[in-house]
Design a protein around this nucleic acid. Sequence first.
DNA 1: TAAAACTATATGAAAAAACATATAATAGGA
DNA 2: TCCTATTATATGTTTTTTCATATAGTTTTA
Lengths: 158, 158
Amino acid sequence: MSTPKKAKTSAFEQSGFVSGYLLYLLAAASEAASKQFHTRVREAGLRITEWRVLACLYDQDGLMITELAHYALMEQSRITRIIDQMETSGLVVRHNDEGDGRRVRIYLTDHGQSLSAELVTAAKAHEMQLLSTLPVKDAANIKPALLALLGSLEAPAN
Amino acid sequence: MSTPKKAKTSAFEQSGFVSGYLLYLLAAASEAASKQFHTRVREAGLRITEWRVLACLYDQDGLMITELAHYALMEQSRITRIIDQMETSGLVVRHNDEGDGRRVRIYLTDHGQSLSAELVTAAKAHEMQLLSTLPVKDAANIKPALLALLGSLEAPAN
DNA sequence: TAAAACTATATGAAAAAACATATAATAGGA
DNA sequence: TCCTATTATATGTTTTTTCATATAGTTTTA
């Protein structure tokens, strides 16, 4: 047979442009690493986007729609609809901001609070497990490198 | 004013769970880094997904639908439809695999070939520029760390 | 070699996401 | 203060994406 059945480790992955391209590595690593944990998120009855919102609110309850969009890496209109659904399922509530009638602040319900705490704990455990499978050097390097990249990208001037 | 207008660098980003969470850093870095280059992709009249397909075919022309799905990190049915559109816009062509009538192999047209070469060149330049903005240490560390992570995640055993 | 199991691609229907824009509230001049 | 510009959220529409499944070709095996 000229073509191998399972081309998992094909010539493609060994050489060529894509397999060493930074943006590909970032996307692939993000996707592969998230995949594992996302299984747990779905087991908790949540969609990925909802988990992201919960995690943001875990850190800082009462964020605005716009702030959530920024932190959770999503468009504003998307957040609006996700909050609609999360409000329906009893995870969060909307409150008008006193002082600025345009703003809507999102707060965790009791249920949302306990669920977010639970998932954050699981996420931390998963992260530790994941980092423990890496060579020590890489495990130590990865977050600083990503933070440097983010910092460089967020800097307005260039 | 109690709430700053532009909360770019808020308390959120300084501390808390999310801002140091590996899966968040990966997603955020991937998104932020890609964003810049994606502007160029759209200027070339392509969607991001189409660029991914072009890049894969640049490395290895004649990939199957399934292989493209794997390498471009997308679902099979999605690739099928993207190839439909790319065929319509004259970037690729489908050919039946001789030897296995189920397989469909995708080949770049002349136009697809020149466009992919052009964009790959631009992508390499962008990557170099991006890495040059990082501290040398981080620039040297990031790809090995991502590769280690990917390797660890692809390994079946654990 | 016929049946069963499996692989590759396509497609209909449903859900999610993006895009543009509407609505409402506030802020900032003239 | 009134007019304009700006900000925050919501919503209608369209496009993407997913999910489940159909179709067709190949391999396996009894």
